[in-house]
C-alpha cells in the first residue's frame, strides 16, 4: 500500500464529508459566512408555517424559521427565526405569516406595523419579541367560495320545491348571506393580495365572478319577492343559468391547480349543461317549471359535485405533494 493510495482514500473521504456538511447547511439555508441573529415573534396561531420556511424583509430572503413552540400558558405561539445580523429592523416591526406560493410553503415577513394596521396582532409579553399575525390560509378562501356555491345550489333547490312567498323571503335573505360571504371573501382576498403575494390573483377573480353572479341573482330574486308571475320566473331561471355558468368558470379556474380537478370540473360542467338544456326546454314550452326544478337528480348532482370540489381543495392545500407526485411519476 503506497502513501499516495492512502492519500487518495483520505481525499475522497474529506471531499464527501465536506459535500455532505456544506450541502446540508446550504440547503437548510444556514450561511456560515454571515453572522446571524435570533428574533422571536408571537402569534395567536401560526397557520402552516414550519421550521425551515424563509424569513423575508421587503421581499428579500434574510433568514429561516428555526423553531415553533406553544407558550406554556397556551395563549401564544412563539416562532424563533435566525436572520442575517445586518437586517434593518423597522421601528414598530411586526411579523406576518403568509403563503409564499400556491404550493403550501409559507413565509414570515418582517414589516412596519403601519403598513397593515388593520390586523389584530398578538401582543408579546417580552418587549423584544415581535407582535405577529397569520393571514388566513387560502383554504379558508376556497372553502368560503365553496360555501357560496353550495348556497346558490340550495337556493335553486328551494325555488324548485315550493315557490311560495315564504320561499321568496328565504331566498332574499339567502342572497343577503351570499353577498355578505362574498364581501368577506373579497376582503380576505385583498388581505392576501396586500400581503406580498400574487398567487391569490386567480382566486380574487373567481370571487369577483361569484360576487357578480350573486348580485345578479339578487336582482332577480328581488323581483321574485314582488311579483311571482310566470314570466318573471323564466327570467329568474335565466339568471340562475348565469350563476351556474359563473360557478362553472370558477371551478374551471381552480381546475388549473391540479390535474385531478379536471375530471371533477367536467362533471360539474355536464351538470350545468343539463340545467341549461332543461332551461331551454322550459323556454320552448315542453315540461312544466315545477317538474324541472324538482328534478332531484340535478340537485343531488350539483350538491355532490360541489362537495367533492371542496374536499379536493382542502386536500390539495394540505397535501400539495400528493398531487404533484401524481403528475411527476
Amino acid at each position: 500500500m503506497s502513501r499516495s493510495k492512502e492519500a487518495l482514500v483520505g481525499v475522497v473521504i474529506l471531499a464527501s464529508v465536506i459535500v455532505v456538511t456544506f450541502g446540508t447547511l446550504w440547503l437548510q439555508g444556514v450561511t456560515l459566512a454571515a453572522t446571524e441573529t435570533e428574533i422571536t415573534a408571537v402569534f395567536a396561531n401560526v397557520g402552516v408555517i414550519r421550521p425551515g420556511n424563509p424569513v423575508k424583509y421587503r421581499g428579500v430572503r434574510v433568514g429561516r424559521v428555526r423553531e415553533i413552540t406553544v407558550d406554556p400558558g397556551g395563549e401564544l405561539v412563539r416562532v424563533v427565526a435566525r436572520i442575517q445580523e445586518d437586517t434593518p429592523m423597522p421601528a414598530d416591526a411586526v411579523a406576518i405569516l403568509a403563503p409564499e406560493s400556491l404550493f403550501g410553503d409559507w413565509q414570515l415577513e418582517i414589516t412596519p406595523r403601519d403598513r397593515f394596521p388593520e390586523y389584530r396582532y398578538a401582543q408579546p409579553d417580552d418587549p423584544d419579541h415581535l407582535p405577529g399575525y397569520a393571514i388566513p390560509d387560502i383554504s379558508q378562501l376556497t372553502a368560503t367560495a365553496d360555501r357560496i356555491s353550495a348556497d346558490i345550489e340550495i337556493l335553486t333547490e328551494r325555488v324548485g320545491i315550493a315557490f311560495s312567498e315564504e320561499t321568496a323571503r328565504n331566498v332574499a335573505s339567502l342572497i343577503d348571506n351570499v353577498e355578505e360571504v362574498t364581501q368577506r371573501l373579497s376582503e380576505l382576498v385583498s388581505q392576501q393580495a396586500g400581503a406580498f403575494t400574487d398567487v391569490t390573483g386567480e382566486i380574487q377573480e373567481a370571487t369577483q365572478r361569484i360576487g357578480e353572479a350573486a348580485a345578479s341573482a339578487r336582482m332577480s330574486f328581488d323581483q321574485v319577492g314582488e311579483t311571482l308571475s310566470r314570466e318573471e320566473l323564466a327570467r329568474i331561471l335565466e339568471d340562475l343559468a348565469v350563476v351556474a355558468e359563473n360557478t362553472r368558470e370558477f371551478s374551471g379556474d381552480l381546475d388549473e391547480t391540479g390535474s385531478e380537478l379536471r375530471g371533477m370540473a367536467a362533471r360539474a360542467d355536464s351538470t350545468f349543461a343539463r340545467v341549461n338544456v332543461l332551461l331551454a326546454q322550459v323556454e320552448a314550452g315542453d315540461g312544466t317549471l315545477g317538474r324541472l326544478l324538482q328534478d332531484p337528480a340535478i340537485a343531488m348532482e350539483v350538491e355532490g359535485t360541489l362537495q367533492e370540489l371542496q374536499l379536493l381543495l382542502e386536500d390539495i392545500r394540505e397535501n400539495p405533494r400528493r398531487y404533484l407526485r401524481l403528475s411527476i411519476f
Binding site: M1, K5, V9, V12, I13
Partner: peptide, 13 residues
C-alpha cells in the same frame, strides 16, 4: 482496512 477502502471506494468513484 485502508487498502480495502481504496479498492472499494476510491476505485469506484
Amino acid at each position: 482496512l485502508v487498502p480495502q477502502m481504496a479498492r472499494v471506494g476510491v476505485d469506484s468513484v
